[in-house]
Design a binder for these strands. Structure first.
Lengths: 108, 108
DNA sequence: CTCATTGTTCGACAGTCGCGGTACAGTGCG
DNA sequence: CGCACTGTACCGCGACTGTCGAACAATGAG
């Protein structure tokens, strides 16, 4: 594990909420929640125009908040949602957030 | 109603999450969730040292995100959580967030 | 009316955020 | 090895955030 990830016990809800309170990061998390393994480029491609360096910044925010795991593999950097950890610590939170994001989609 | 509050349909989860993603605002919301009617000074007193003008700023953030109602009454400004609206639009979100904040309390 | 109380508005300021560009490191492929 | 690819590191920039103090408006109490 090349990056420092917070322990489950070190995760704080302030950090999680403000990490998720940004459209690009929330959209990224929704994609990761779709399952499967993603690398950074994947998501940049799905999201459209956002520079790599900006996304690197968002990955760090999400990682340090405890929302995602980031694990280099070959020349890629694989991303996954820390759903088990989040669900254990904050039951129902992620589900409510993701459902809420879907609600917003319909309303827009 | 002297302040402009967003319609329930105008509330967006990004705004709600980033509004709640700040320790002082989250603490305020937790107090408001305790029930009863509160004015601004009440909460400032409970939270401890935070200037009035700073709190005015936080109230605006919460209000514009659709998290609280703010209604002047006499020379006070009464605050209440928009729980019905939030629960309707984002079922389970507020419960999960408030429960999560309580979890953090225990961990600290 | 006079005055204390309540909270807003305004201005200022330091710090962080979001963003992209460029350069670079690490990897795999030919 | 040489090269394309993936993503990070670092820099700088403009915008926004969080914070406060001072002045002000509105109201209720005496």
């Amino acid at each position: 594990m090349r990056y420092r990830h917070p322990d489950p016990a070190q995760i704080r809800i302030d950090g999680v909420l403000s990490a998720l309170g940004h459209p690009v990061r929330l959209a990224s998390v929704r994609i990761l929640d779709g399952g499967g393994v993603h690398n950074c480029g994947d998501i940049v491609k799905i999201l459209g125009a956002t520079s790599k360096s900006t996304m690197t910044h968002h990955w760090r925010v999400l990682r340090e908040a405890g929302v995602i795991f980031q694990e280099p593999s070959g020349r890629e950097n694989l991303l996954r949602l820390r759903r088990p950890d989040l669900d254990t610590r904050y039951p129902g939170l992620l589900d409510a957030v993701l459902a809420g994001a879907a609600t917003d989609d319909v309303t827009d």
